[in-house]
Structure formats: structure tokens, C-alpha cells
Write a protein that binds this DNA or RNA. Structure first.
Lengths: 145, 145
DNA sequence: TTTGACCCTGAAGTTTGCTTTAGGGTTTAT
DNA sequence: ATAAACCCTAAAGCAAACTTCAGGGTCAAA
């Protein structure tokens, strides 16, 4: 009957987050459920679930809920005022994402160095720290922006 | 004389964070200054600055201070007990970093779509939202882990 | 028809990561 | 030798992102 709407407990189980967090996200206007039953139960659609997944992934890579809300609001629409505004904001976010990717790649490199230097067993380990593998390459050196 | 030690204000200026945050990181054992002057002034070395940059970058990509402390503690050392432990932890962190990178690449793709769909001027914008560019590809769909 | 597994709201509490406040010492230029 | 620009500690305060609590409704199965 109801195409594929799920109650809050089911969505929570699917996305591995708590029911309380879902209600909190609603209060914070990050995720409004598609509709409510007569009794007031929240019903979420597949689109709601996609939106939630976007939120969770964005959060994992360091965006705040406020930033995520802005990202979710991003839409080109002739009815909405400035296409130019959207283009500027999007361009800035793309740059931000690129910096994050570069940082993660450096961290990946450093961790791989450490991983490979390790015998895996319990003897003869080369003494090595994550920071020395970083320092060697002068990675993560912040130039005044 | 003192090779290249700097006081807290100078390090703060270089790394664009506040003096108070630096003192807070010390209290949290994320960054102990190389030494102190007779008067108790903190003096930071170049290695301290590298360590700090690592902290700041890791923070930017979504690691908590507690996780960063663990990462900084990572070192292979024959004196320390389990090389195997380090290898396991490092392997897990590498996987985590790879997931973050993949997430960011999807976000980059979505933002680029939005950016390109935009005329940049003030008319004729194709109606488009960040979520639709994501949904189209069914990106960010969380499979129960 | 009642019991157990769900769902609701509103408000208070918690943790993390800082920032601010209060009250001082130290250094350096004038 | 004094004022401006720095530095110190300890403790309180704050915003973000949840979590817990208190007190109730709803619904399907036994």
C-alpha cells in the first residue's frame, strides 16, 4: 500500500544511527520525513534515506551540520535568485573538498609507510613513527594561506 | 642561539590558530612544547610545528582529537610490545581513510555536476540540486556494514 | 485485552573542542 | 623605569551534536 515508507526505527537500523539522532536531525531541519501517520508516526521515503546518507557521509569527512544544511540547500533554479551565487559557493566547496582529499592522500601515504615498515609479527620491527614518515617528506606543512 | 624555537604567539600566527587552542592541545597531550624558558614560556621546535600541522590536517578531515592522539602515538618500536597490534590498527585506519577519500570523490563529482550545470550568469539556469545529481547515480547509498 | 515492542514530545544532561575571564608575571622599546 | 606587548595558570563559560529522562500514546500478537 504505502509504496516503501518506513518508520523511524527501521530507518535507524538501516543507517546505523539512533532514533534520537533522527529526531534531532528533524528538529535541526536536516531531514524532514516525507509524511506522518494519523498517530503522528514519522514515515520516511527512499529519497529521505538518500538525503540521510548524504548527511552521514558529509559528516564523516568533516563537514558540520550547518555546512551540510547549506550543501543540501544547493540547487540551481531559475526561480531562485542568483545562479552566480550558487556557482561561487559551489566553486569554493569544490576547492575545499579537493584540499580534504589531498590531506587524506598524504595521511594514506604516511599510514602505508608505517604499515609496510611493520613486520606483522612480534620481532625485528624497524623503529618508526607516523610522524617521522610525514616529516621526512615535509608533508602537511602549512603555508600561510 | 636557540636553534629555531618559537614562542607560542609565533606558532599561533604561523598555523592560524589561537594561542589558547595551543595551550588547550598541550593540556590534552596532543602537543607538548619542546621546552620552557626559565620564566615558564613555552618554546616550540620545528618538529612540534610538524606535529601540530598533522593534528590540524587530521582534524579537518574528520578525525577527533582522541583519534589523532592515537595516530600520533603510532610507532613501530621493538621495545614496545606488539608490532602486530600496530599493523592491525594501521590497516584499519588505512581502510577508514580510503572510505573517506571515496566519499569526498563522490561529493566532488556531485558538486562539479552542479557547478557545470550552472551558467554562471543570471539567466537560463537548468534546474538542478545537489541531491539529484547524487541520487541519479545512487551514490552514497549505505550498505549495512 | 493486555503486554511488549514500538512511537511521540519537551526538556534537561553530556561530551567535545574550544573561548573567555580573572588575576597575574616578563620582555622590550622608549 | 614604565608602558605596551607579550606570556602564565586555573576555572568558568559556550556552541555543536547528541543522549537521556520523564511521561505518555499506538499497535499487533497472544
Amino acid at each position: 500500500m504505502n509504496q516503501d515508507l518506513v518508520k523511524i526505527g527501521e530507518l535507524a537500523k538501516r543507517t546505523q544511527i539512533s532514533v534520537e539522532t533522527l529526531r534531532y536531525y528533524e528538529k535541526e531541519k536536516l531531514l524532514q520525513p516525507e509524511l506522518r501517520t494519523g498517530a503522528g508516526y514519522r514515515l520516511y521515503s527512499a529519497a529521505d534515506e538518500h538525503r540521510l546518507n548524504f548527511v552521514l557521509h558529509a559528516k564523516k569527512v568533516g563537514f558540520s551540520l550547518a555546512q551540510i544544511k547549506e550543501l543540501l540547500a544547493l540547487r540551481l533554479n531559475k526561480d531562485q535568485h542568483s545562479c552566480e551565487e550558487v556557482k561561487n559557493y559551489t566553486g569554493a566547496k569544490i576547492a575545499e573538498v579537493e584540499v580534504k582529499i589531498a590531506d587524506l592522500q598524504k595521511m594514506h601515504y604516511a599510514l602505508s609507510n608505517l604499515y609496510n615498515a611493520c613486520c606483522g609479527g612480534s620481532e625485528k620491527a624497524t623503529s618508526c613513527a607516523i610522524l617521522s614518515s610525514l616529516d621526512d617528506e615535509t608533508l602537511f606543512t602549512r603555508k600561510a594561506k
